[in-house]
Design a protein around this nucleic acid. Structure first.
Lengths: 201, 201
DNA sequence: GGCGAAGCGGAAGTGAAATTCCGCTTTCGC
DNA sequence: GCGAAAGCGGAATTTCACTTCCGCTTCGCC
């Protein structure tokens, strides 16, 4: 953030610094998405085309690097989902749009960070709970709207939103997409069908 | 397995050995469930109340320890779910029973091993795919039966089963249970409602 | 109770990955 | 173009968890 701002009299941020940080974030984001949080810093450096030291100049630890990556990716996800919801009018349509957006997002390997509350304690630097909550809130609102309007059955909107959200977790998206021959749209459709109709005939 | 069998003329298995192995498996199972596969062997040893060497005497590596733990837990889960399905008559009832069984299981901290196919490659010693498949098959069969009988809407039974299974993953069970004030039965009920009725009113 | 086999604990060894450090290079402002 | 400040690369260091090893203890049998 704020890479271009400068104090009076201070030198402008060097061009190469900005370029390198972008490369590092990009590489980290890709590798994190591809292989989970256990990637080696060396690999990140290699893919970014920089030395390890360069990473550590801006990100004091691996954890903080991934917190930064996650924050960016999640901001982006949040934005996409909100956008999708805005573009649709009917609550059920909004839900469909959100799901589709998330599935397409994952297909592009972006946004693969799992935001769900992590029972294994040790909260990292990243404000996962907050990011999770913001998406959860979005869903809960849409569902509540549907309930008021009558198109969605009554029930604890928080819980219904949480259940939907589980079907949007990166892992789930990947699993289901694979089962649909990597056709994410098809997978999303199935989930939407499940969501709206349930199993009963 | 087969801890009590003995070759002719061989000394009986020492009592302490059996006791220790049980403690180790118990501790490993708890910790694995609580904190995922990144627990330290030292922690397992401490919780089990034995030295690290004792673990290594029977389990040549961390991976094999967890394979053993997983195998036991999954066998158990599989058995419980199959049992639950058997006890019910109607396919929808079977599904309800399966879900409830899994939620109760998780509440007891058992069976928290995530069997879903892991995209991050490197298949461990444990036959996760096989264990996952066996539960997936169980679900798919129940769903297909419901479809034949007419109580479940038509659609790709494999995919529907996979979606259900996602809602049974340990992480999901934990998240949703927490949201229901740790009342697993309530959480399971919500999921069942979602499953059978969907969102539409 | 005594003997020997088997098991135990946990300190030391090992290896892989994270992090530091510093001489060399690049960039910016003039 | 030049000088200084900032950044860079990556070898060396540190850290940290897995695994080994061996002197001491416990168990089962007679």
């Amino acid at each position: 953030m704020a890479v271009d701002t400068e104090d009076a009299g201070a030198r402008r941020t060097r061009r190469d610094v900005q370029r390198n940080m972008e490369r590092v974030l990009q590489a980290a984001q890709e590798l994190f998405a591809e292989r989970g949080p256990d990637v080696k810093m060396e690999d990140v450096a290699r893919r970014a085309g920089v030395g390890i030291g360069t990473i550590y100049r801006r990100f004091p630890s691996k954890e903080q690097l991934f917190a930064a990556v996650s924050a960016v990716a999640c901001q982006h996800t949040r934005h996409c989902l909100a956008q999708a919801a805005d573009d649709a009018h009917d609550p059920l349509e909004k839900l469909r749009a959100i799901i589709l957006a998330q599935y397409r997002q994952s297909a592009r390997q972006a946004a693969l960070i799992d935001l769900r509350p992590d029972p294994s304690g040790v909260p990292p630097d990243l404000d996962r709970p907050g990011l999770y909550a913001s998406i959860h809130t979005l869903l809960a609102r849409v569902i509540a709207a549907g309930q008021r309007q009558g198109s969605i059955r009554s029930g604890d909107a928080q819980m219904l939103a949480a259940i939907c959200l589980e079907l949007l977790s990166p892992r789930t998206v990947q699993n289901l997409s694979r089962l649909a021959d990597d056709d994410v749209d098809a997978a999303a459709d199935q989930v939407v069908g499940f969501l709206t109709a349930g199993l009963r005939s």
